[in-house]
Nucleic acid binder design. Sequence first.
DNA 1: CCTTGAATTGAACATGCGTTCAGATAGGGT
DNA 2: ACCCTATCTGAACGCATGTTCAATTCAAGG
Lengths: 196, 196
Amino acid sequence: MARTQGSHAGTTGPKVRDAALRLFARHGFAAVSMRQIAREVGVQAGALYLYTPDKQTLLFELMRDHLEDLLAGWSAPEGGAAVQLEHFARHHIAYHLDRPDLVFIAYMELRNLSPENFAVIEGLRRDYEDRLEAILRAGVAEGVFDVPDTKLATMAVISMLTGVTTWFRDGGRLSRGDVESIYWDMVRKAVMSGGV
Amino acid sequence: MARTQGSHAGTTGPKVRDAALRLFARHGFAAVSMRQIAREVGVQAGALYLYTPDKQTLLFELMRDHLEDLLAGWSAPEGGAAVQLEHFARHHIAYHLDRPDLVFIAYMELRNLSPENFAVIEGLRRDYEDRLEAILRAGVAEGVFDVPDTKLATMAVISMLTGVTTWFRDGGRLSRGDVESIYWDMVRKAVMSGGV
DNA sequence: CCTTGAATTGAACATGCGTTCAGATAGGGT
DNA sequence: ACCCTATCTGAACGCATGTTCAATTCAAGG
């Protein structure tokens, strides 16, 4: 106890990121001070600068790592466009429900990034959207999807799926599996050919 | 010219709201100072307090008026659930595309509201969601909609429609009318019975 | 022309901000 | 047993914050 200095703890770095993530998600990047983050970690504000060059980089790295994880966590399975779309939709929901705070700040704090950092994050986001659009285009070419504009459909599907984080809470009426299935069903009907 | 004081202009009030709206949308509530708003209006910071009791109320009133407008601007037309849903979807998109800044802050700045103000805004938002859910429930009762959970479908539809503000820009490939029609088509197919 | 009072200024208040850095501390390697 | 060095403290820097208020300005009414 009371080991306040000189400790080679090695755990402070992750704790700084965790605290920053939680506080940024709860109060917003601009509303959180370095002193608040430090208090949460149990350290003085100056010590944070051993783990990040500045506050902005703390935000940027959270967002970048999140999007790189999202991209790394999904790859197109074998099969037709319909199979790929189902896989994409279910993975998107599962991933987002597992990381509500990261998803939240990645969508909310874009405007607090420097122009250079914004460009990086925007590029990663576009990569992700492009994957979905490629599936939709393939489905149109196969004749199984009927969407007049794949870019619009991409944005519509992503908005709908991401929106799940705004209302879903574990322990409610529906399980994660239920939610995945129902969302996938709506996506499927919305883009499939031969509908009502 | 150079009429700097004592003027009974009567236009400063709206200018304060306009400047606050624009700046909050661009940089976020917490990142905008009263002095920045004042500079935009062409006035000293102290003068703002003739038009708002504090910064928080400035945000709250923007959000409240926005949601009250949204609620006042739509009422269910005569007809079945399908007709009502189309009307709702088109109105939602048109309204949101007309007021991107207000929509943006109403979704992004909820966490910067005091608990009392948050409760008011949350109530208005729920009123709006309830209208859509009522349509979906009516459609299920009529047998024209097939959704396993009306609350989930409500959130999914609202997320999808609201997402249009994140990418649509006037003068692009698609007109507002195009976008309304394509979104409505996706919503229709997603909730209608007898689909693929 | 003078008075009135709404509109606005400009300075002040206490507090907090991000960031830097010299100095203190103590665990691990020798 | 000792030193090295990664780790952390605590104070300081200059500047910005939201808000208040006495003093000032000037259009309008009598």
